[in-house]
Design a protein around this nucleic acid. Structure first.
Lengths: 287, 287
DNA sequence: CGCCAGATTGACACGGCTCAAGCGGTGTGG
DNA sequence: CCACACCGCTTGAGCCGTGTCAATCTGGCG
């Protein structure tokens, strides 16, 4: 156990309040206070700490205040899959709200701070402060939407598009919480983490990153991401931020190119691959 | 839209009440009545009906009482992806609870009946009947869990394992709602639908199904699934029903073999990954 | 009887995986 | 201060699972 005790400025929720509009924007002072006092521990944890083990019983939610966390799943053949990345303001294990055993674990990818909210207190909070319940609903549904997009990515996008899409998503999510510097941000994932997130291998991630970089779209080096050409990158992978359901950033990150002509094909009965594969303006050489 | 009006035994929620333990099991008579009267329309719809178009505004939930529905997403290159299948008792578009525009559409895969619950009434219901809100929470989180498993499948399982896993999951889900006949059930999906669900192509689905059949594991023909060897099939794909969070069926469908599953690998089996990753499996600490 | 969506098959291409070696930093102990 | 170990990154060669393209077959139905 490497988790230290609460200390310094980690001992409050200020970071969370300031950075996650859609969790706290609609809460008044009373709600925020109620939330804060319901949270038991606030812990400072080091990179590599497991907040929750796969298949272990659980009875509390972990709300990430600072740092990065990952949900992970060890598959039956021993391989690993990462179904979610948590950044400040995210809840690492929302399912613990109702289930006492989750089929994934949660580990810290960097040092950080975590608020622990016992399930029973969360339920009590929902009863007394409906606005908090609303905020959690939004979180749950947004998480669902992100998961849907990730699944779609793995099912229907190429390796380089998947990587590009993930980097786009993270830029948006990190911008909201003030963790970006223009079009750059720190990303404490190894190439193997990225591979396990996207359903690829680390070797292929390595080659894909080189390809994206040689196309002058984005550089990922030394745990830092720098997006050189947002318009080209987002167009290349078909990134459209609406699935994040963050009204605030729709403008800033809206696709600058029309969302491609292949859109109006509503009838599900149609062929799944209508041949039309518009070459995106600046696709890097290797797909 | 070919939705007809309510008719015959479609005009009530009896099917739903009877079949979805975790949606209605914890509701008393008053809750059920409240739910029923909150639902506006109950519609009989034909196969191919679109309940919701991708990116269209929406303001009501569609609760499937009978038949099959699919969420679908048309990707930027024109290909299709199916992130969820709905069977009786499922909610086709849960996100509509809070978002007024969804990034997926919903279509009927078969004829069926659908209850329409306007968002505002759902919210009112939650306020007056907390047990209903609880039931919806469970649904939302279970859905999330299924999505996670699907993503893991696409990221880390072979084509034949993915197909097998889907067929296992559907057997369990359909058994709960009384739509199976022993280890058989009707599946109104074309091979192309299956392909779009699993992130594959219909040609490959065809070959994979033949392979599974030649291994005497499962037969999928004429829109009907017959599982010949549940133990072998579930072991082959590493199916463990816990992610469905259905206490009732844990015994019946529990894996009969230890999940290590180095067994029953016809020509389908893929080289497994023997390398366990110590960094995640033997993590030293838990909070 | 003809039509048509869906299922099936074959030949071939290629994206991503596997295996394996080597490189570069960085922390640790002698 | 060096030697070493370790971990993550990089690169190369070759393989194979799955996609692509295209033709043909099948069964249900008007």
């Amino acid at each position: 156990m490497t988790a230290g005790s609460a200390g310094g400025d980690a001992g409050n929720l200020s970071g969370l309040k300031a950075t996650r509009p859609w969790l706290f924007a609609n809460l008044d002072a009373a709600d925020r206070d109620a939330f804060e006092s319901a949270c038991g521990d606030i812990r400072t944890v080091s990179a590599g700490t497991d907040l929750l083990r796969q298949d272990a019983p659980t009875s509390a939610l972990h709300i990430l205040l600072d740092g990065w966390a990952a949900r992970y799943k060890i598959m039956e053949d021993g391989s690993r899959f990462i179904p979610a990345l948590a950044v400040p303001g995210d809840i690492c294990d929302l399912d613990a709200l109702r289930f006492d055993q989750l089929d994934y674990g949660v580990t810290m990818l960097s040092a950080g701070t975590v608020a622990v909210l016992p399930r029973q207190r969360a339920h009590a909070l929902f009863a007394t402060n409906p606005a908090i319940a609303d905020a959690f609903w939004s979180l749950a549904l947004a998480e669902n939407s992100i998961l849907t997009e990730w699944a779609a990515s793995m099912g229907r996008r190429s390796a380089s598009q998947r990587v590009a899409h993930l980097l786009c998503e993270l830029l948006v999510r990190l911008t909201i919480v003030g963790k970006t510097d223009g079009h750059s941000y720190d990303l404490p994932l190894t190439q193997e983490h990225i591979a396990d997130t996207l359903g690829l291998t680390s070797v292929h991630i390595n080659r894909t990153l080189q390809s994206l970089r040689s196309g002058d779209l984005v550089t990922v080096q030394h745990r830092r991401v720098t997006i050189h050409d947002w318009a080209a990158l987002s167009a290349f992978c078909g990134f459209r931020p609406s699935y994040l359901h963050l009204e605030t950033v729709d403008d800033e990150f809206a696709p600058e190119l029309p969302p491609s002509g292949a859109r109006v094909r509503h009838q599900l009965a149609q062929a799944s691959r209508p041949t039309l594969r518009p070459s995106f303006t600046s696709a890097p050489s290797a797909l």
